[in-house]
Design a protein around this nucleic acid. Structure first.
Lengths: 249, 249
DNA sequence: CAGACTTTTCGATGGAACATCGAAACAGGC
DNA sequence: GCCTGTTTCGATGTTCCATCGAAAAGTCTG
């Protein structure tokens, strides 16, 4: 029977290999692997799935999704083109796996900041500053991935769920800030959307070549966003100092 | 001699037909056109270049650049696939022509606002509000086009020049606002970049389906941006009223 | 330790899309 | 009528995504 028939729903979500072994992947010095040997004789370093994702990530950052051929990814991962389809059914699944990784960082960040508590303005400041830096550090442009995810809501369902969660956390900060009078009376939904858009948009232009350091860009954007939200501008300095105390010590 | 050999540098920049006739295109009731007739018998309505761009714009908005096949554009414009290449050498040239059109609106807007003069905060407020609306009204996602333009700086040289001009105009507003004390002491370059990123990022999320009206989104973003820039937050109300007086009367 | 089964890889192939080439089909001027 | 220039087409080449069946290894069972 052909291996494709063994695919279950779960692997689609995980974006990984068809039948992922429960045992850890080959890591020893002489990783005896089953299956037909590769035509090239290069030593096999780790989990092929990870190697594929690493190659894809690098290439997509360089050439974009459309400009990155499956054959190129395969060759950089030490495989032939058709062998890729053993690990990922379609090109989009590779993209989905990459976006799933990228999504973890901002979401973890937001959760940690929510757990830390503190004034809403400080929370938002901390988030924006770190989010911009994190997005700038990604090897590829998150906006391009967004666009692909938007055209295939079913295939990227997990992504959109996480995205909604993230937006919800930010909304909650904004709501708290408004109710305790520290923030202006803005639309929380629109504001959360704008904050995320802003981070991603800036990341885009940073990628296109700005001399600024990501840290500086992040701080500037955080200044602008929080400055636009706080009820009294004199608070901005205190907010910045509070954020620095938490994150830079 | 093949028609390709007749291409000059100019047509590349204009993104149009190989040898654009100086005479106006057929507009009469019975526009007798020279050249081989089309295989379909549909009546020919206007300039084929415009029809191609209209079809491409619609399809790209629907399916994205990668998802829009040249054969599809051709068929919607009443042509066979290979006939497109008489008007545009490559798919990217169609994209370049579209982006050239899209770029006109924000640049004109910024120039008019500069000519109008007035306080920097009002200028920025007016720009952001109108820019967001204009970007939301585009049939396609400007961010996708940006990315393609970024990967081919030579082919989109005109676009990048105009972009730099736009950024320069905004920078000048910010500089003026700082020097006369109405705006906080921010980095003008970074701020101009952030403002444009913000507009484009919000446009992106609006396109993905928000219940808000573009007008409302634009006003909210303008509030946030200008609120983050003005030295005294009490000024925000006055700025908004001043902008309303100019644009909504 | 032979043979069945599983895992991983490959080569061949089909189909879709971009792009090029040469020629066909018209109009207008000589 | 014939030549020239304009616009369109069909055929073709190449590249890329994706599928299929089989090959080449290891592992398990009797």
């Amino acid at each position: 029977m052909h291996v494709h028939a063994q695919v279950t729903g779960d692997e689609r979500a995980s974006g990984g290999r068809y039948d992922r072994p429960v045992t850890s992947p080959a890591t020893g010095p002489n990783p005896r692997r089953i299956g037909r040997p590769r035509s090239n004789s290069r030593p096999l370093v780790g989990d092929p799935t990870d190697e594929i994702l690493a190659a894809a990530s690098r290439l997509i950052g360089l050439l974009g999704v459309g400009g990155t051929a499956m054959s190129r990814i395969a060759s950089e991962a030490g495989l032939k083109q058709s062998s890729l389809y053993y690990y990922f059914h379609r090109k989009e699944e590779i993209v989905a796996a990459l976006v799933a990784r990228a999504n973890v960082v901002p979401l973890e960040l937001a959760r940690r900041i929510t757990d830390d508590g503190g004034p809403a303005a400080v929370q938002i400041y901390r988030f924006v500053r770190a989010d911009v830096v994190a997005l700038c550090a990604l090897p590829f442009d998150i906006n391009e991935i967004h666009r692909i995810a938007a055209r295939d809501p079913a295939g990227f369902a997990e992504y959109w769920t996480e995205r909604a969660t993230l937006e919800g956390l930010i909304e909650a900060w904004v709501r708290h800030g408004i109710s305790d009078g520290h923030l202006r009376d803005v639309d929380p939904v629109l504001t959360a959307m704008t904050i995320l858009s802003n981070d991603e948009g800036v990341q885009n232009w940073f990628r296109l070549g700005t001399a600024r350091e990501p840290q500086a860009v992040g701080a500037a954007v955080a200044d602008l966003v929080v400055g636009g939200l706080v009820a009294a501008p004199s608070r901005l300095d205190r907010v910045r100092r509070a954020a620095d105390r938490i994150d830079f010590q």
